[in-house]
Design a protein around this nucleic acid. Structure first.
Lengths: 203, 203
DNA sequence: TAAATGTCTTAACATACCTTAAGTTTTTCC
DNA sequence: GGAAAAACTTAAGGTATGTTAAGACATTTA
């Protein structure tokens, strides 16, 4: 009954199997809970003060997730892309207005599940609790690392780390976006890159 | 068979029940998986490069968790205390050397579970997966908030937020420790507090 | 209770990063 | 293909925070 292309389903299944055991019967049970969603570049997946109604697995595409602080300023958190999940887990869980803005930087394809469906899925397949337990654990670990990296403040080093960690992302993003991720202004980022080039030439 | 005082168990049960439904039979099954641990002020619960063998529920006490970055510098992440869990989930899950240092700032009482016991508990009581899924979700949300707070940089505001969020903690910590949490030097923190006092006097 | 150790304050100077603004280049879109 | 919009660069001046150092105060330990 699902209108999701087989290729996408296959990819999704492989993703699940990296974390939990899913046999064919299980998967036939799982897949109808998900729906296909496509987004064009520059379209918003979520925008305050919407409530995040879905958790979304990214089949294809690149996003930018930013949180808005009390004074209305946007802070770029990450660039979710292929084989990640994207969403605002806080808003999703509490049904409260999100303060997260998620925008597609490239045309994208998602597999989405609603809260009601997810609760139903937890009932029929408890191993899914395990799946999201582990996923959340990974999120927390990643956030912890990001926090520490941000504490050890030396933007130049942070940039080099970024290049090492996401080598392919560099070509999919503008300098302005990378600056936002690092937490510096585009102007300062430009200066920094110049400095790095200079150093490279000297050595 | 458990040597854990009834009062502690009762507290733990209330904690669990805030998140999942646990009846008396369930709880009788759960409690033998946990062991009691006491620590004196200044003792270490975890110290690199140990592997974190336990997840620990804090019945009583106050800790300081810091992560060590690549260059060996310590960054203060949080002050786990009563009714929180403390540990290094990364090391606990991967069995790898921890880069987290957890020290008791006050005499403490913990209920601990090993990885093997926790896996066993997941088998016999799947709702425990749910419990830790939600716990991890909370961690991720808290870390995300902390990250944004750290981005919106204005240490003075961060300090006022800290006081509002953890009003009781102020008296249990030294200024040096609070400075570490905010990510500023003790010297600058001192200056900042002077400035705040001045402002209060003016208004 | 004294000595030792750690914490807090103050101040002078250093630095990483921001702000604004203007000019140039690149990308988007009709 | 050309106009409009967005991104990038450079530079001058400003601010938040770090560093070092020294003295006062507080807490722990012998």
């Amino acid at each position: 009954m699902s209108d999701i292309p087989a290729l996408y389903l296959e990819k999704f299944r492989e993703h699940l199997q990296k974390i939990i055991a899913v046999n064919e019967d299980d998967f036939r049970l799982i897949s109808p809970f998900f729906t296909l969603k496509t987004l064009r570049k520059k379209e918003y997946l979520l925008r305050p003060p919407q409530v995040s109604g879905y958790e979304s697995y990214i089949v294809k595409g690149l996003f930018q997730s930013s949180l808005i602080d009390d004074s209305g300023k946007l802070h770029l958190l990450y660039f979710p892309h292929e084989d990640w999940w994207v969403g605002d887990f806080k808003s999703f869980r509490t049904d409260q207005a999100s303060s997260m803005e998620i925008v597609a930087l490239e045309d994208a394809v998602l597999l989405q599940i609603t809260k009601a469906s997810l609760e139903e899925l937890y009932q029929s397949l408890p191993v899914f609790e395990r799946f999201f337990r582990i996923l959340n654990e990974n999120s927390a670990i990643a956030l912890q690392n990001r926090l520490v990296q941000h504490f050890s403040k030396d933007s130049e080093k942070k940039y080099l780390d970024f290049l090492k960690k996401y080598p392919t992302l560099k070509n999919r993003l503008t300098n302005r976006q990378i600056a936002g991720f690092l937490g510096v202004t585009p102007e300062y980022f430009s200066l920094m890159r110049k400095r790095i080039l200079q150093k490279d030439r000297d050595s």
